[in-house]
Simulated assay, not measured.
Amino acid sequence: MTKTDTAGAVRYRVTGMDCSACAAKIEATARLVAGVRDAKVSIASQEMTLRTENGTAPLPEVERSIMGLGYRLARIDADEDDGKVPDLSHVSPAYKRALWIVVVLNAGYGVIEIVGGFLAGSQSVKADALDFIGDGVISFLGLIAVGWGLAARAKAALLQGIFLGILGVGVLVATAYRVVVQHEPEAQLMGILALVGLVVNVMAALVLLPHRHGDANVRAVWLFSRNDAIGNVAVVIAALLVAWTQTPWPDLVVAVVIAALFLQSSFAIIRDARNDLSKAPSANPQQSKA
Protein backbone atom coordinates (compact mmCIF):
# COMPACT_ATOMS: atom_id res chain seq x y z
CA MET A 1 0.00 0.00 0.00
CA THR A 2 1.34 3.46 -0.88
CA LYS A 3 2.56 5.58 1.99
CA THR A 4 -0.19 8.17 2.52
CA ASP A 5 -1.69 10.20 5.33
CA THR A 6 -4.90 12.11 5.92
CA ALA A 7 -3.44 15.16 4.21
CA GLY A 8 -3.00 13.19 0.99
CA ALA A 9 0.80 12.77 1.15
CA VAL A 10 2.46 10.25 -1.17
CA ARG A 11 6.18 9.45 -1.17
CA TYR A 12 8.37 8.40 -4.09
CA ARG A 13 11.97 7.35 -4.41
CA VAL A 14 13.62 9.34 -7.25
CA THR A 15 16.53 8.00 -9.28
CA GLY A 16 18.64 10.19 -11.57
CA MET A 17 19.07 13.43 -9.60
CA ASP A 18 22.59 14.82 -9.40
CA CYS A 19 22.12 18.36 -8.05
CA SER A 20 19.70 20.69 -6.29
CA ALA A 21 18.64 22.07 -9.68
CA CYS A 22 17.26 18.62 -10.53
CA ALA A 23 15.19 18.65 -7.34
CA ALA A 24 13.83 22.12 -8.12
CA LYS A 25 12.90 21.04 -11.67
CA ILE A 26 11.00 18.00 -10.39
CA GLU A 27 9.13 20.08 -7.79
CA ALA A 28 8.11 22.66 -10.40
CA THR A 29 6.91 19.97 -12.82
CA ALA A 30 4.83 18.19 -10.16
CA ARG A 31 3.19 21.42 -8.98
CA LEU A 32 1.97 22.15 -12.51
CA VAL A 33 -0.25 19.06 -12.44
CA ALA A 34 -3.87 19.80 -11.50
CA GLY A 35 -4.75 18.35 -8.11
CA VAL A 36 -1.24 18.64 -6.64
CA ARG A 37 -1.18 21.01 -3.67
CA ASP A 38 2.54 20.79 -2.97
CA ALA A 39 5.67 18.83 -3.90
CA LYS A 40 8.89 18.58 -1.96
CA VAL A 41 12.00 16.82 -3.29
CA SER A 42 14.96 16.00 -1.05
CA ILE A 43 18.31 15.65 -2.81
CA ALA A 44 19.64 14.19 0.44
CA SER A 45 17.30 11.20 0.72
CA GLN A 46 16.48 11.05 -3.02
CA GLU A 47 12.77 11.18 -2.19
CA MET A 48 9.75 13.22 -3.27
CA THR A 49 6.70 13.91 -1.11
CA LEU A 50 3.47 14.94 -2.86
CA ARG A 51 0.39 16.42 -1.23
CA THR A 52 -2.72 16.11 -3.35
CA GLU A 53 -6.30 17.33 -3.18
CA ASN A 54 -8.02 14.26 -4.65
CA GLY A 55 -6.18 11.29 -3.21
CA THR A 56 -4.27 9.37 -5.90
CA ALA A 57 -6.19 10.83 -8.88
CA PRO A 58 -3.37 13.06 -10.25
CA LEU A 59 -0.53 10.60 -9.55
CA PRO A 60 -0.38 8.92 -13.00
CA GLU A 61 -0.01 12.31 -14.68
CA VAL A 62 2.64 13.39 -12.16
CA GLU A 63 4.57 10.18 -12.80
CA ARG A 64 4.40 10.59 -16.58
CA SER A 65 5.53 14.22 -16.39
CA ILE A 66 8.52 13.56 -14.15
CA MET A 67 9.62 10.40 -15.93
CA GLY A 68 9.33 12.39 -19.15
CA LEU A 69 12.09 14.64 -17.78
CA GLY A 70 14.40 11.63 -17.56
CA TYR A 71 14.06 10.59 -13.90
CA ARG A 72 12.88 7.27 -12.49
CA LEU A 73 10.18 7.02 -9.84
CA ALA A 74 9.13 4.27 -7.45
CA ARG A 75 6.42 4.69 -4.83
CA ILE A 76 7.55 4.08 -1.27
CA ASP A 77 5.41 1.56 0.58
CA ALA A 78 4.39 1.96 4.20
CA ASP A 79 6.33 -1.22 4.99
CA GLU A 80 9.60 0.63 4.42
CA ASP A 81 8.93 2.77 7.48
CA ASP A 82 8.59 -0.44 9.51
CA GLY A 83 12.17 -1.44 8.72
CA LYS A 84 11.40 -3.93 5.95
CA VAL A 85 13.46 -4.16 2.78
CA PRO A 86 12.29 -1.52 0.26
CA ASP A 87 11.24 -2.30 -3.28
CA LEU A 88 14.31 -1.79 -5.46
CA SER A 89 12.86 -3.14 -8.70
CA HIS A 90 13.24 0.30 -10.31
CA VAL A 91 17.05 0.04 -10.07
CA SER A 92 18.28 -2.65 -12.48
CA PRO A 93 21.78 -4.20 -12.17
CA ALA A 94 22.79 -2.67 -15.51
CA TYR A 95 21.68 0.79 -14.35
CA LYS A 96 23.60 0.38 -11.09
CA ARG A 97 26.72 -0.56 -13.06
CA ALA A 98 26.26 2.54 -15.20
CA LEU A 99 25.95 4.68 -12.08
CA TRP A 100 29.16 3.21 -10.68
CA ILE A 101 30.96 4.17 -13.89
CA VAL A 102 29.58 7.71 -13.61
CA VAL A 103 30.72 7.90 -9.97
CA VAL A 104 34.25 6.83 -10.92
CA LEU A 105 34.39 9.24 -13.88
CA ASN A 106 33.17 12.23 -11.88
CA ALA A 107 35.01 11.66 -8.60
CA GLY A 108 38.16 10.39 -10.31
CA TYR A 109 38.49 13.33 -12.64
CA GLY A 110 37.57 15.69 -9.81
CA VAL A 111 40.66 14.53 -7.92
CA ILE A 112 42.79 14.84 -11.06
CA GLU A 113 41.48 18.35 -11.68
CA ILE A 114 42.16 19.42 -8.09
CA VAL A 115 45.81 18.42 -8.55
CA GLY A 116 45.87 20.09 -11.97
CA GLY A 117 44.39 23.25 -10.47
CA PHE A 118 47.29 23.51 -8.04
CA LEU A 119 49.81 22.85 -10.81
CA ALA A 120 48.20 25.47 -13.05
CA GLY A 121 47.68 27.89 -10.16
CA SER A 122 44.07 28.21 -11.29
CA GLN A 123 41.22 28.79 -8.86
CA SER A 124 38.53 28.21 -11.49
CA VAL A 125 39.94 24.76 -12.25
CA LYS A 126 39.83 23.91 -8.54
CA ALA A 127 36.24 25.15 -8.34
CA ASP A 128 35.25 23.10 -11.40
CA ALA A 129 36.84 20.08 -9.72
CA LEU A 130 34.38 20.54 -6.87
CA ASP A 131 31.50 20.21 -9.33
CA PHE A 132 32.89 16.86 -10.50
CA ILE A 133 33.46 15.65 -6.95
CA GLY A 134 30.02 16.86 -5.90
CA ASP A 135 28.30 14.99 -8.74
CA GLY A 136 30.29 11.86 -7.90
CA VAL A 137 29.45 12.08 -4.20
CA ILE A 138 25.71 12.58 -4.78
CA SER A 139 25.59 9.70 -7.29
CA PHE A 140 27.56 7.50 -4.88
CA LEU A 141 25.22 8.33 -2.01
CA GLY A 142 22.15 7.56 -4.10
CA LEU A 143 23.71 4.28 -5.22
CA ILE A 144 24.88 2.79 -1.91
CA ALA A 145 22.04 4.15 0.21
CA VAL A 146 19.14 3.09 -2.02
CA GLY A 147 18.18 0.28 0.38
CA TRP A 148 18.76 2.23 3.58
CA GLY A 149 16.10 3.74 5.80
CA LEU A 150 15.31 7.45 5.71
CA ALA A 151 17.27 8.29 8.87
CA ALA A 152 20.43 6.51 7.66
CA ARG A 153 20.28 8.18 4.24
CA ALA A 154 19.73 11.58 5.82
CA LYS A 155 22.69 11.18 8.19
CA ALA A 156 24.96 10.13 5.34
CA ALA A 157 23.79 13.06 3.21
CA LEU A 158 24.32 15.50 6.09
CA LEU A 159 27.96 14.40 6.43
CA GLN A 160 28.44 14.62 2.66
CA GLY A 161 26.90 18.09 2.52
CA ILE A 162 29.11 19.37 5.35
CA PHE A 163 32.22 17.93 3.72
CA LEU A 164 31.41 19.43 0.33
CA GLY A 165 30.57 22.76 1.97
CA ILE A 166 33.99 22.83 3.62
CA LEU A 167 35.61 22.22 0.23
CA GLY A 168 33.60 25.07 -1.32
CA VAL A 169 34.56 27.49 1.45
CA GLY A 170 38.16 26.42 1.02
CA VAL A 171 38.10 27.41 -2.65
CA LEU A 172 36.59 30.82 -1.82
CA VAL A 173 39.23 31.43 0.88
CA ALA A 174 42.02 30.40 -1.48
CA THR A 175 40.56 32.66 -4.17
CA ALA A 176 40.51 35.61 -1.75
CA TYR A 177 44.15 34.94 -0.92
CA ARG A 178 45.01 34.77 -4.61
CA VAL A 179 43.35 38.17 -5.13
CA VAL A 180 45.91 39.59 -2.71
CA VAL A 181 48.85 37.72 -4.20
CA GLN A 182 47.74 38.38 -7.81
CA HIS A 183 49.49 35.32 -9.22
CA GLU A 184 48.70 34.69 -12.89
CA PRO A 185 47.64 31.09 -13.59
CA GLU A 186 48.95 28.88 -16.38
CA ALA A 187 46.36 29.53 -19.08
CA GLN A 188 47.31 26.63 -21.35
CA LEU A 189 47.02 24.00 -18.61
CA MET A 190 43.72 25.59 -17.48
CA GLY A 191 42.27 25.19 -20.95
CA ILE A 192 43.48 21.59 -21.33
CA LEU A 193 41.99 20.51 -17.99
CA ALA A 194 38.66 22.16 -18.81
CA LEU A 195 38.49 20.52 -22.25
CA VAL A 196 39.24 17.09 -20.75
CA GLY A 197 36.49 17.77 -18.22
CA LEU A 198 34.10 18.41 -21.08
CA VAL A 199 35.00 15.01 -22.55
CA VAL A 200 34.42 13.33 -19.16
CA ASN A 201 30.94 14.88 -18.96
CA VAL A 202 30.08 13.57 -22.42
CA MET A 203 31.39 10.10 -21.49
CA ALA A 204 29.18 10.06 -18.38
CA ALA A 205 26.17 10.98 -20.52
CA LEU A 206 26.95 8.21 -23.01
CA VAL A 207 27.19 5.64 -20.20
CA LEU A 208 23.70 6.55 -18.95
CA LEU A 209 22.18 6.94 -22.40
CA PRO A 210 21.12 3.27 -22.84
CA HIS A 211 19.19 3.46 -19.58
CA ARG A 212 16.97 6.35 -20.64
CA HIS A 213 13.87 5.48 -22.64
CA GLY A 214 12.01 7.76 -25.01
CA ASP A 215 12.92 10.98 -26.73
CA ALA A 216 12.18 13.16 -23.69
CA ASN A 217 14.50 11.06 -21.54
CA VAL A 218 17.27 11.16 -24.12
CA ARG A 219 17.00 14.95 -24.19
CA ALA A 220 17.16 15.00 -20.41
CA VAL A 221 20.48 13.10 -20.38
CA TRP A 222 22.00 15.69 -22.64
CA LEU A 223 20.52 18.51 -20.59
CA PHE A 224 22.30 17.13 -17.51
CA SER A 225 25.55 16.89 -19.47
CA ARG A 226 25.05 20.39 -20.84
CA ASN A 227 24.53 21.87 -17.39
CA ASP A 228 27.69 20.24 -16.04
CA ALA A 229 29.62 21.32 -19.14
CA ILE A 230 28.81 24.99 -18.53
CA GLY A 231 31.48 25.11 -15.85
CA ASN A 232 34.04 23.56 -18.21
CA VAL A 233 33.24 26.07 -20.94
CA ALA A 234 33.50 28.91 -18.43
CA VAL A 235 36.99 27.74 -17.43
CA VAL A 236 38.05 27.54 -21.09
CA ILE A 237 36.83 31.11 -21.62
CA ALA A 238 38.63 32.20 -18.46
CA ALA A 239 41.85 30.58 -19.72
CA LEU A 240 41.58 32.46 -23.02
CA LEU A 241 40.96 35.75 -21.21
CA VAL A 242 43.90 35.14 -18.87
CA ALA A 243 46.18 34.56 -21.86
CA TRP A 244 44.80 37.63 -23.62
CA THR A 245 44.76 40.08 -20.70
CA GLN A 246 47.80 38.68 -18.88
CA THR A 247 45.89 39.08 -15.59
CA PRO A 248 44.44 36.50 -13.15
CA TRP A 249 41.06 38.26 -12.81
CA PRO A 250 39.07 36.13 -15.30
CA ASP A 251 40.21 32.98 -13.48
CA LEU A 252 39.25 34.43 -10.08
CA VAL A 253 35.81 35.62 -11.20
CA VAL A 254 34.89 32.23 -12.69
CA ALA A 255 36.18 30.48 -9.55
CA VAL A 256 33.92 32.58 -7.31
CA VAL A 257 30.86 31.97 -9.50
CA ILE A 258 31.38 28.19 -9.70
CA ALA A 259 32.20 27.87 -5.99
CA ALA A 260 29.13 29.93 -5.04
CA LEU A 261 26.85 27.71 -7.13
CA PHE A 262 28.47 24.65 -5.62
CA LEU A 263 27.96 25.96 -2.09
CA GLN A 264 24.30 26.59 -2.89
CA SER A 265 23.89 22.91 -3.75
CA SER A 266 25.82 21.89 -0.64
CA PHE A 267 23.55 23.99 1.58
CA ALA A 268 20.50 22.45 -0.11
CA ILE A 269 21.80 18.96 0.73
CA ILE A 270 22.34 19.93 4.37
CA ARG A 271 18.90 21.58 4.61
CA ASP A 272 17.13 18.57 3.10
CA ALA A 273 19.08 16.15 5.30
CA ARG A 274 18.07 18.03 8.44
CA ASN A 275 14.43 18.04 7.34
CA ASP A 276 14.56 14.32 6.59
CA LEU A 277 16.10 13.57 9.99
CA SER A 278 13.28 15.45 11.70
CA LYS A 279 10.72 13.30 9.85
CA ALA A 280 12.49 9.94 10.22
CA PRO A 281 10.82 7.46 12.62
CA SER A 282 14.05 6.95 14.56
CA ALA A 283 14.23 10.69 15.20
CA ASN A 284 10.63 10.83 16.36
CA PRO A 285 9.82 8.15 19.01
CA GLN A 286 6.10 8.93 18.98
CA GLN A 287 5.98 8.50 15.17
CA SER A 288 7.88 5.20 15.47
CA LYS A 289 5.29 3.81 17.85
CA ALA A 290 2.36 4.97 15.73
Rank of each mutant, 00 (worst) to 15 (best):
A234K: 04
E184C: 01
S139D: 10
W148C: 00
V200D: 15
V233A: 12
A176V: 13
I166E: 13
L158T: 00
G136S: 13
V181W: 14
V207K: 00
L208Q: 15
L223V: 13
N217R: 09
A239R: 08
H183T: 13
V179E: 15
L141H: 08
V181Q: 15
G191N: 00
A194R: 04
G149H: 11
S124M: 12
L189S: 03
A205I: 04
L206G: 04
L189G: 01
A205G: 02
E184A: 02
E184D: 04
W222C: 07
A234H: 10
H211K: 08
L164A: 11
A205Y: 02
A238V: 10
R226E: 14
V235S: 05
V235F: 02
G231D: 15
G168F: 13
L143S: 08
L189D: 03
V233S: 06
A205M: 00
V171N: 06
P185F: 09
F140C: 05
V137I: 02
V236Y: 02
A243W: 03
Q182F: 02
I237K: 01
I237A: 14
A154D: 01
A176M: 12
L189P: 05
L206S: 07
A174L: 12
L130D: 10
A127K: 03
L240M: 11
L143K: 01
P210K: 01
L172Q: 04
I237N: 06
V125Y: 05
I237G: 06
G165K: 03
V199Y: 06
A220K: 00
D228N: 06
G214L: 06
N201E: 10
I144K: 07
L241S: 03
E184P: 00
L223H: 03
V180G: 00
V171D: 13
G168L: 12
N227Y: 11
F163T: 15
V242M: 09
V207T: 12
G191Q: 01
L159G: 07
W148F: 06
L208Y: 12
Q182W: 05
I144A: 07
G134W: 08
